[in-house]
Simulated scan of single mutants.
Amino acid sequence: MGLQLLMAGYAAAVLTVTIAARFVWLFALTPLGNLLRGGEQPPSRRQVTLLGWAGMRGVVSMAAAYAIPPEVPERDRAMLLFLTFTTVIGTLLIQGTTFPALIRRLRVSSDQEEYEDRLAAAAAQQTALEEGLAELDRLLAGRDEPDEIEKQVIDQLREKAWRRSMSAWERLGGGSGQDGAETPSALYRRLRREMLQAERRVFVRLRDERHIEDEVLRDLMAQLDLEEAMLER
């Protein structure tokens, strides 16, 4: 029991040092890398933290451990293999399983620059469309009441401007535009989900009334579940 505790202590110590050494190395070299990059934007502390936590060990570490020369005493070889194995398993279980949660917690995105460009483009398009609608109002000011056909043309112009504005904000991945209005895609998903719930209730009612069998109900429900899953994507 004492030997097992000692081995576990060695494994925990090596794992801790391995993880900590990567952070020390990255944070120590980041300032030097910033100098070498010149005018490029340096990585943030969040990005460096994420890189540090990404230092999981795997097959290469095990291969290096097995490549130990045979001249090394068998006891030492066994100890090195054990510590390598526990380090690999430890990093995969601890760092690997928590990596997605860390990304969400730090809110780090590799597409941050692209997102900012899309945000600027959406804001610019919103401003231009507002000016276009204002110009439309100026053109219509002082004119006689439009007839039915002219009203349809004007409504189409306004709707097209609104759709263009919403599509610009949709590319940002959100469900609403700059003014909080629901985007067409978000509206479609919300209404379609409500329709799917109504369809499910009908299928269950028809099964309860013995118009369809349980097997048929499962097939129909699976089709609705698939469509709902696609909506979530």
Rank of each mutant, 00 (worst) to 15 (best):
G2C: 08
M7F: 11
M7G: 06
A11N: 10
V14G: 04
F23T: 00
L26K: 04
A28L: 14
L35Q: 07
L35S: 02
P43S: 02
P43Q: 01
P43R: 08
S44V: 05
Q47R: 14
L51R: 06
W53H: 14
A54T: 00
M56Q: 00
G58P: 01
G58M: 11
V60M: 15
S61C: 07
P69I: 01
P69Q: 03
V72K: 07
P73I: 05
E74A: 15
D76C: 07
L81S: 08
L81E: 04
L83E: 04
F85G: 06
T86D: 05
T87W: 04
V88H: 03
G90K: 02
I94P: 00
T97H: 11
T97K: 13
T97S: 15
T98K: 02
T98C: 04
F99N: 01
A101D: 04
L102D: 00
R105L: 15
L106R: 03
R107T: 11
S109Y: 07
R118T: 00
L119E: 08
A122G: 03
Q125R: 10
Q126L: 09
T127F: 05
A128D: 12
G132C: 11
G132Y: 13
L140F: 03
E148W: 10
E150Y: 06
Q152H: 11
D155L: 08
E159T: 11
W169T: 04
R171A: 15
R171G: 15
L172K: 04
L172F: 05
G173I: 00
Q178F: 08
R190N: 11
R192P: 13
R192K: 14
E194T: 01
L196H: 11
Q197Y: 02
A198Q: 13
F203M: 05
L206W: 10
L206F: 09
L206Y: 07
D208N: 14
E209N: 06
E213Y: 05
E213Q: 10
R218A: 15
D219W: 09
L220N: 03
A222H: 07
L224M: 14
L226A: 14
